[in-house]
Each structure stands twice: as C-alpha cells, then as structure tokens.
Write a protein that binds this DNA or RNA. Structure first.
Lengths: 243, 243
DNA sequence: CTTGGCTGGTTGACTAACCAAGTTGGACAG
DNA sequence: CTGTCCAACTTGGTTAGTCAACCAGCCAAG
C-alpha cells in the first residue's frame, strides 16, 4: 500500500502563498510578508523560503525590489487563445481560381444568420460562397461569408470577381475596421445534398459545422463565416497545456 | 554614469545552457551535463548551478530524475490555450453517485487505445466508464478512462468503488505524477447503440467523439480519456482573440 | 543464471552563513 | 522647516555543508 509523501517544504510554502494570492488574501499591489516573517511562520530556513518565493516570481505572481520588499502582482493573466488553424484558414483563405467561387449576391438573412449578426430576420445580407481546397484547409470545406448589405458597401463581397485576399483581410482593408475576436460555434451534423455534391461526400457523410462570428473590439458582429468541414479520422487535433 | 552590471552568476549559467538547448547543442532527449561538471565548467558552487537549472526546469527546458540526471526537453512549445471547459470537465469530473459508474476493469488495448497510449495492441489496460451528467458537463456525455495496468498500480481505476476525485487528479495524487499537457482529437460520428441507450439519444443521433491523451511534461502518454458528447444546437462555443 | 551488497555517481531538499545593495524612519544639526 | 546621518530592516546573490534518495555497474555467493 502506497503512503502519500509529504510535499517538499518549499512547495508547501509556495502553494500556501499562491492560494492566498489566488483567493485575494494578498491583494494585487499589496506587500507580501517579509522573508523573516515567512521564516517564522513556516519554520523554515531563509533559503527555503526564498526558493518558494523565486518559484512564484517566475510564475509571475510577485515582484521584488531589493531593500523594499515583494509586491503582489496577482494571478498571472490567462493567456488569450490564438485561433486554431481551421479558424484562421476560414478567415484568411484567398480565392485563387474561378471554379472555387460558387456564388455571390444578396439574400434575406435567415434566423441563424440574423442571430449571429445581431440583425433582424429577413434583413438583406450579402452572401458569398466558395469551396476551400487542400491549399486553404486541412480538409474539404464549404465556406459562406455573410455581411449586412450596409456594411458591405465599398467591399467586393457581392461582386463576381475573385477576392484575392481573405474575407477578413478584405473587410478590414476596405472598411478600415479592426476585428477584435472571433466566436466559433461547432456542431456535428449530416451533410446536406448540396454539401455532399460540392465536397464529393458519401450519402451518409457527417460534417462539422463551424459558425464563425467576427466581432469588433466592442463585440459588435462584423462578419459571419459559415464553414462546413468533412473531417476524416483522426479528426481535429489540439494540444492544451495543463500548467 | 551607469555601468552595466555584471549579470548574476546563476543567470549567466542559465542563459548559457538555455542557448545551447535552443541551438541544438544539447538535443531533446539527451542528458545534460551533471551538476558536478557544470560546477567545474562555470566555477560556481553547486547551489548556484542548481539555481540556474531550477530556473530552466520551471521554464520547461529540462527535467530531472533523482539519482539519474537531467534530461533535455528542448525549447518549451509555444504556450497553447487553457483547455476549454469540455476538456477540463472530462479530466476532473468526480464520481458522485453509483448509478453513473458503468464499469471498471481490465481489457486488452484496442488499436486506437494502444496508439493513443503508445503501447502495443492487446496490452492489458484498465478501462473505467461512466456517464457524465449536467453536474459534470454542459451536455450528456459518456467518458471512458484507459490506463495501462502497470501504470494503474496503486490507483483506484480498476476498483468498483467510486472515485471521489477526477481521473487526472486521482492519477496525479496516487502516482505522484504531474501532467504536462493534453492532446484532444475531435471527430463527429453517428452514436453507437450503447451510446444512444446510455445517453438517451434518438435513433440517428450524431455525437462528437473527443479522444483526450494526457501526457507528462516529457510527452509520455499517461492517461487516455475517450468522451462521447451529444452536443445540441448552438453547439460548442469558443472565443478567440484576433490580436 | 539470479540475487544481494557495495561503490561511485547522480539529483532533491534543507540549513547555515556571509557579503552586497537597497529602503525607511527617526534623530539631530543648521 | 530641510538636509544629513545612521540603525534597522529589506531583498539579491553566493558559498559550504549535510542528509536523503535514487541509478548503474561490478562482484561475490548461492
């Protein structure tokens, strides 16, 4: 039977202090107790205390000034996520051959499109549909960009000419906008007949449907890209750090 | 007139070693010189050398085994995202009611399980299956944890008793391991008959299959969790920053 | 052949001590 | 009141030492 080991003293000290910072006991901007105080509290040598503090410093929880003391910085900010490749592909894929552009033109916004763009159902939008190839994406995909007509003014979204830059690149350049983030909603479903035909899929093919809402920094929807991907085994792979 | 200060000795050592790792002088997988060797090379005390090594360890460049030496891991990979909620749920969901544990016991590793755990097909693994409820997860899900029998020694994975902590928490505590990252492979497919029954799904229900490989900091697979989720509209939502 | 003990090496953790460099507050003089 | 000095306190860096726990190789005994 395995006996649980006692954690190392420096780890105990580091974790205790870290918890206090995470829980707000030591607020950001406040001074941490001095080394001498911590030596007394944790019955450890100074070197052991310093080792724990160094660990927290490297994690970004605290910052020390010689002669003055250590300041609490707070829990290190959560890194914001870079979009995975499939999202970036959809935002930036250029139209390089005429055969890939299925169509472009005005249509009334469906309920789904209206909800994603925060506009009334039926409001006119420009829809632009294209096939994404292995040059654009890891898997065969069908991509439809939607943008409200008023917002498409001055852009080439409704034109029959190829857009030699990605949809987001084009919008940002033509409308002098800066996108802030993108929200992806991912659902699995059966491929429609049109999708099967355009992507050369089997009768019962299952696809991943990704609805990408590009927003401004104030969260206003700017552009919607509806992507349908046929993802073969071993599927979409992502790696996440656990510390 | 400010004269540039001589960098601290430990910083000089850490930066020298870090450069050698970045430049491939010490290749990933190789052994770093011993502390005694570095003491001689850099004319420093052992504690000073250890301080430099500890800094690199925390950055993720190296990993040490007591009595054996330190292994070069290589430059740390670009920090990836915090795992999304569905992944964290699967890693940390506790078993709180007996009805949710479907079964636990030994089985030979299927090709998929073997590949994910980097073990031979047919090698005995412990499989533990449970239903995840709305307390655990945003959607109904079926979760099966797989761990090689030898690695399950000293854990409760094969037992019929409930595990009152998450699978990863349990493994880390019982085996004194620290997980480094988790790789997710996501595919859409039709639900199997068992999945439909256990998750109360329709005849043609489509599910998302998420295969999670938990790895150590040296990328060795530790634990596999196979999750099948029924994701209703509007699907899995994620937000990504664009700057 | 296997097993156990020994040796030399390895890292992990902890303590003690020293020196350096800086901050802060109080006391004192002008 | 302002400026200077000094003591007490602070963190930064380094060395030396000890004990514990482990690995790998070697050799002897069964």
């Amino acid at each position: 039977m395995q006996i649980d080991p006692t954690p190392a003293k420096y780890a105990t000290i580091a974790n205790a202090l870290r918890s206090r910072i995470d829980n707000g006991v030591y607020a950001p901007g406040s001074m941490l107790p001095s080394e001498a105080q911590l030596v007394r509290e944790f019955h450890a040598s100074r070197s052991t205390v310093v080792r724990a503090l160094e660990y927290l410093r490297q994690l970004g929880y605290i910052e020390g000034v010689q002669g003055k003391g250590r300041t609490v910085l707070g829990p290190p900010p959560q890194r914001s996520c870079t979009p995975p490749a499939r999202v970036l592909d959809a935002l930036h894929a250029r139209e390089v051959r005429h055969g890939l552009l299925i169509g472009a033109g005005q249509a009334p916004a469906s309920p789904g499109v209206a909800a994603a763009l925060a506009i009334p159902v039926g409001e006119p939008v420009i829809a632009r549909q294209r096939v994404m190839t292995s040059e654009d994406s890891d898997w065969p995909a069908l991509s439809t960009a939607y943008i409200p007509v008023v917002a498409a003014d001055g852009t080439g979204f409704g034109a029959k000419e190829l857009m030699h830059e990605g949809a987001l690149d084009h919008l940002e350049r033509r409308r002098r906008l800066v996108a802030g983030d993108v929200v992806e909603r991912l659902t699995p479903r059966l491929a429609s007949a049109q999708e099967r035909m355009l992507l050369t899929l089997d009768r019962h093919a299952i696809v991943l449907h990704s609805l990408l809402t590009v927003r401004s920094s104030s969260r206003q929807p700017l552009l919607l890209i509806d992507v349908v991907m046929h993802v073969p085994s071993p599927g979409i792979e992502d790696t996440f750090s656990l510390h």
